[in-house]
Structure formats: structure tokens, C-alpha cells
Amino acid sequence: MSNLVRIAPGALVVGKPLPWTVYDVEGNVLLRQGYVIQNDMQLEQLFDRGLFHPRKIERQQEEILEDTRQRNPFADYPVLLQTLEVTLNAITSGDDSAEKRLLGLTRLIERTCDDAPDVCLALIHLYSVEPTIHEQVLFYAILCHFTAQTFGLDKERTSLLTSAALVANLALVPVADQLNASRKILNGDQRAVIRKHPQRSVIALYAAGIRNQTLFDIIAQHHEQADGSGYPKGLSGTEIRPEAEILALAERYVAMITKRAYRQRMNITDARKLIASLTDGQLRPAIPRALLTVLTEYPPGTLVRLANNEVGVVTQRPVRHLGPFVKAIISPKGNRYSGTFERDCSLLEFNIRAVEQPEIMPSMDFSLIWDLH
């Protein structure tokens, strides 16, 4: 397979599922997407042997948008990340295609979310170990899309918010991964960069020929606080657009559940409690409620222990009086099943007893677990 390229150092992380299938030098599958690297020695061996398909985007945006296939978010994950990177680069370089690329990517994400909502939510929770800035931004966009719909925004406002989520942190992209990997307290210069990133992102969008004041307002306001303590203008209450508050909450939730070099991640139960505790002085109350409704008590991609002592991954949110649904992957005795077994957690013997958050995630074949082809 001549189209394979070597894995770059830093592209893979111990304890995090592989974002793509890895091949050996002859093009044979070495490890499938979803495999979790267990230790540094295995990681070094992969750097010596492992290759993967390059993330290519050779089609025009129009061709991508006309693709009517059922979306497979796991297979699309590398493509979405690469498309995002290309889009952000087009904006920062002032490319004439910038706005067209942003709108095209927004529509692609919306369609993927609408085709496979549970799988899109699973992406966020399965790849929450030290995500790159591009992964974080994709997570923000997915959460904003679903939360806006549940909150009651119309299609046009929802799409605009999804676009805003993709570009609101544009000015942070060059330094975000470095900051996230650092174990040191931020210095004054770094804090200044963070505080100025909403305005700098808007300036970059304007320079790229984008002219949408509502989009600019969402970006400029997404670090304002209802009590007036936010930045850059200290806006308060209804001066802040609900879209900006939804984006702020999406960013906050992703920060809670993601593991960083300088801190462990919060488990889902604690993250939900913190969101539920947000008061009227911090956000419009309907916004945290909308996000919690989207996530449900056990979001897809969450590892859980069942009443029969099996461990599984949540694959589907509750539907009417059924579910949530889990694919059991580990037996009550702690042995790994050779396959997976679907469990309806509304049944007493399969009730969810606790959220599991192991130091190292178990490997999973995502497409098999979610029956995607």
C-alpha cells in the first residue's frame, strides 16, 4: 500500500484509543482504530513499525456535501479533523475559500450528528484522553449542535453556533496543545493570549472575508459571564447571546471530562452534578438543562459496571421506557469477552451500578460495537 505514511512522534498517546487503523510496512492491518496503547514500550514499537493511511482531502467541498452515504463518525473522524485543520489554515492565511470551507464543514458535521447522534457523542467520551486542540474544537461543535437543538434554537441559529464553535478558538490553535501539555502554571503572557483570543479570532475571520456580525458576537461573548465577571467586555445577563452561553458550557464540559498532563479528568457523574449546580447568575438555566438532556445520565462512550458485574460501553441513550443500551465487553469475572453482548439497562439484572474510569481504557473495535460498516 504505497499511500501509507509513518506515524509522527506525538500523534499517539498511551491510554487513548487509536484514531485510525495502523498498518505495517506491507499494508497489513497491525492495529484497528479503537485499540488502546498500554505502555511506552508498545508506543515506541509502533513508531518503529506502524504506518497509517494519510488523511487526504482531495475532493472539493461541494463533492463532500453531495455525498449522501450514511455517515460513520468513527471512519470519518480523521477526515473531520483534517478538514477542520485545512479550514482553520484557510482562514488564518486569508484564503478566498475560507468561508466556503467553514460552511461546508459545518454542514458535514451537522449531517454526521443527525445521521448518528449517539456515535457522535461517543466520540467525545472515548477520545477524552489528552485530546488535541482540533479534537477539542470538533467536540465543541458536536455538543453545540445537539444542545442548541434541545434548547430550541432554529436551524439557522443552530448552524451559525456550530460554525462559531469551530472558529471561536482560532487564535489559540497555535499554542493550545503546548499549553495543555504543560504542567506549569500559566505565566502573564500566556494568560494575555488566552484573554485576547475571542477578539483575535474575530479579526482573523474578518481578514478572511467573512462578514457575519452574529457569528462575531457569539465568538466575542463566549467567555463573558452572566454576573459580569467575564471578558473581554464584562457583559452580563441578557446582554450575552444564548449561543455564546451554549458554546461556553460545551467548552466547560469538555474541559471537565478530558485528561490533561497537569490533571486527571472528572468522571461523568461528577461533571453532570457540576453542570446541574450552575445557577441563574452563571447561565440561563435552560442551557445546562438542555446539555444534560442531550448527554443523559450515562452518555454514549461511557464505560459502566452493571448489576451482574459486567463492564460495558454505553452505545445508545434511553428510548422511551427502554435503555440505556450497553455492549458488555468484560465478564463478571474480569475476563475480556471475545465478542460483545447488548444489554438493555432498564432490566434489573443489567442496571448500571457505577461509572468506570480506568487509568488505561480497554481496547474496542468501535465499528463492531456500534454495528457500523
Rank of each mutant, 00 (worst) to 15 (best):
N3K: 09
P9W: 12
V13L: 09
K16G: 06
W20V: 12
T21P: 03
Y23E: 07
Q33A: 13
M41V: 15
E44A: 12
Q45V: 02
L46F: 05
R59F: 15
T68E: 08
A75D: 11
Y77A: 03
L81W: 02
Q82Y: 07
Q82E: 15
T83M: 11
E85P: 01
V86T: 14
A90N: 12
A90P: 09
A90M: 08
T92Q: 13
T92P: 05
G94N: 01
R111C: 04
A116G: 13
L126Y: 00
Y127W: 01
V137A: 00
F139S: 00
F151S: 11
E156H: 10
T162M: 04
A164K: 04
P174G: 01
A181L: 10
L186Q: 09
Q199G: 06
R200I: 15
Y231H: 05
L235E: 11
S236A: 13
I240Y: 02
R241P: 04
A248P: 05
M256C: 12
R260H: 08
R263T: 06
L274H: 10
I275F: 10
P288D: 14
L291I: 04
L306R: 15
A307F: 01
N308T: 11
E310G: 07
E310S: 14
V313R: 08
R317G: 08
R320K: 07
V326L: 08
V326C: 15
K327V: 08
S331V: 12
K333Y: 09
G334R: 04
Y337E: 03
T340P: 03
F341D: 00
R353G: 05
D365Q: 06
F366A: 05
I369K: 03
